[in-house]
Design a protein around this nucleic acid. Structure first.
Lengths: 215, 215
DNA sequence: TGAAAAACAGTGGTATACCACTAGAGCTAT
DNA sequence: ATAGCTCTAGTGGTATACCACTGTTTTTCA
């Protein structure tokens, strides 16, 4: 593929040099991502925020709360994608970050592949949650479900209907015929479902749906 | 689509006229399937077996055991596809029929769509089990699992590995790279998995795998 | 009753899965 | 040691899913 596409401009804000080093080396050989800014204190990176497509943000910065920072950055730069990269693997933190506009959430032991995928995915406007993060939310969702408060994404009636048919091995075409709607409509619903569930493809959608108890 | 393809030649053997009538009317308007033979006793249909692509076979024939019949027909006409169409929704019968070479198993309350799909699927050489049948086998598989005897399809080490990666939302390409094998190989494994699990697509594979406890 | 949400539908792609078929290499258990 | 798996890999195609983007109509409910 010969294309002169723009590299994704990434920034890092993290207390620990070692983390920054790790990310830099992970992304060094990647030709679709360039780290244009890295800092251990927010003062150093804030003047460059407007240049960034994606920022990797830690939660436990020594002087300020990353959760608040997330909200602040997101309101100042709505187009900036924020990926939380942290060692806090706690549902409360994850939910707080997502509520405050974070586009991704990764555990610090993330593999290079996943880091790259997270950056590319959020850059494209989709949410990306690390594997452990997803599992944690699902587990939490099932538990809190009984407590009337759940992280289970709210699906509309039609979406649930279509989700069930997808799990039932029907193709979009078959679903369209069954529900007397057009193929496009089914595809649209499917895209929305995929986004709401945070799935990357059919396999993920089915897995998440079943684990959420939606099937 | 303008094509002069051969219709699938189907036969029915069932005690009850009403069932035969139902199948005939279900398939009457279908232009890819033609019912060329229907009978309430085996003597009437056996001379025509060699003409058939697919036969719908009941289990509880008044004079003879359909399970044995299945084995007999299959050995005489290996290319004949046998779909068991019965009101016996019991695991023991289902297993017996499948052991004896049946290609499909449907409950008699089957919808027209599913009947057609079953015929087309088995005609193409794939196994087709009705929805209720599948669920029953899965449930049974999970229960008997504890008793050291299970209907869970035996997957090879590599197949399990690949199945897990599929459920983990990886594409064939990504799996190939991860396992250092070619895309073709992954596709082959995927096809085998799909067949072993009796799934029609990724969605089904994931659903069945999770319900079998393979994930 | 008016705004928001949901459902519907299209265009125009690209990526991926699905499928039938063949076939060699390596291992493995009677 | 040989028949039968398992794993590997290919060809060449078709079907389906994926995706961004835009827009209209219908329903819901504050």
């Amino acid at each position: 593929m010969i294309s002169v596409k723009q590299k994704i401009k990434v920034g890092i804000l993290d207390d620990h040099h070692i983390v920054i080093q790790g990310v830099l080396s992970s992304l060094a050989n990647n030709n679709s991502i360039s780290v244009v800014s890295a800092a251990t204190a927010k003062e150093y990176i804030e003047p460059e925020l407007h240049l960034l497509d994606v920022i990797l943000l830690d939660i436990n910065l020594n002087d300020v709360d990353g959760v608040d920072l997330c909200k602040k950055y997101k309101s100042e730069f709505p187009n900036l994608k924020i990926i939380c990269l942290t060692s806090f693997l706690q549902v409360s933190f994850i939910k707080a970050m997502l509520r405050n506009g974070a586009d991704g959430y990764l555990f610090k032991n993330v593999a290079t592949d996943e880091l790259i995928e997270a950056i590319e995915t959020t850059y494209k406007g989709k949410r990306y949650l690390g594997k452990e993060v997803n599992e944690l939310l699902i587990k939490d969702g099932m538990e809190t479900n009984k407590n009337r408060r759940s992280f289970i994404p709210k699906l509309t009636r039609r979406e649930k209907e279509i989700l069930a048919l997808i799990i039932d091995e029907m193709t979009n075409q078959q679903i369209a015929e069954k529900l007397f709607i057009s193929l496009s409509t089914v595809e649209t619903h499917r895209m929305n479902l995929s986004a709401k569930l945070g799935a990357k493809n059919t396999a993920g959608m089915v897995r998440i749906a079943i684990k959420f108890g939606l099937a």
